[in-house]
């Protein structure tokens, strides 16, 4: 190959690999520092130990935050999957009408700075008495999780062969039975993936939770943030390692069920 072409190719790959390294670097730092033997958050870590893992499991605050995160995550998953699936089903096959304005409205919360969302909801929940409650945080996280569920399901429904349903009805199945026996098995994978994504979104969300939680309802990211603002404590890395691991598992499951590229495009 001509020398210039070779140089261009090498530069191109070097660039891509640098960004690849950049994207993984912080995650590597977090996992590495969780095994640190010292109390300093240094990279590469000084020595190896599991001491901070023990610390985590002995700390009532962290365990409480863990419980809070799981409760809020499950609540968000249920609510946002219900809202997203019903809306996607309702808009399936309809292009005109005012229904088309629903999708952009549902998408809007993702573009508004979470601090502003947090403020608006804080003010609102104070008025209606939901401040610092689990429900309040679930309702907030649902603002972010629903558009993802909605767009995943919209594309799942549009890929589904609706003639199958017509065939089912034609063969004498009632609409209910048709949905249960024909439509649902065809879109089940999509529902599982969107539910998993909704759970992870809730688990990782931090700014709205910061505004809307208190000492008793704070989630893991909120407690981690509070801890970090005082000192760089390797226990945070332990918690972070768990969170990263969970995301890796969810991505792996989603990629197995639907394929990674498809999932990636739905996230944008």
């Amino acid at each position: 190959m001509a020398r210039r072409e070779t140089a261009e190719t090498a530069a191109f790959h070097a660039g891509a690999l640098s960004i690849l390294a950049f994207m993984f670097l912080p995650l590597v730092v977090v996992v590495a520092t969780s095994f640190s033997a010292s109390g300093n958050l240094a990279f590469p870590p000084e020595g190896f130990s599991l001491a901070w893992y023990g610390e985590f499991f002995d700390d009532a605050d962290w365990l409480q935050a863990f419980d809070n995160s799981v409760v809020i995550g499950i609540g968000t998953t249920l609510l946002s999957t219900f809202l997203g699936v019903t809306a996607a089903l309702g808009l399936q096959g309809r292009s005109g009408g005012w229904g088309r304005y629903l999708a952009p409205v549902a998408l809007l919360p993702l573009l508004i700075p979470p601090v502003v969302l947090g403020v608006a909801l804080l003010v609102y929940f104070s008025e209606i008495g939901l401040r610092s409650s689990y429900l309040g945080i679930v309702l907030a996280h649902t603002l972010w999780a629903t558009p993802l569920v909605f767009f995943v399901m919209q594309s799942v429904f549009s890929r589904f062969d609706w003639e199958l349903r017509d065939a089912g009805m034609d063969l004498g199945a009632s609409p209910l039975r048709t949905f249960y026996h024909i439509t649902l098995p065809g879109v089940r994978n999509g529902i599982v993936v969107s539910a998993l994504l909704a759970f992870v979104i809730s688990l990782q969300e931090f700014i709205m939770a910061l505004f809307l939680s208190n000492y008793a309802t704070r989630t893991i990211p909120v407690l981690a943030w509070g801890t970090l603002r005082q000192s760089l404590n390797p226990v945070v890395s332990v918690v972070s390692t768990f969170l990263i691991l969970l995301s890796v598992i969810v991505i792996a499951v989603a990629a197995l069920v639907m394929n990674l590229e498809w999932v990636a495009k739905r996230l944008s």
Partner: peptide, 23 residues
């Protein structure tokens, strides 16, 4: 390459931020 984009996307802001401090 796709994984390197999706994983940080599904990681909390807190982690994405503080990991730069020791660096």
């Amino acid at each position: 390459l796709l994984f390197s984009i999706v994983l940080p996307l599904l990681t909390t802001l807190v982690i994405k931020t503080y990991a730069w401090l020791p660096l």
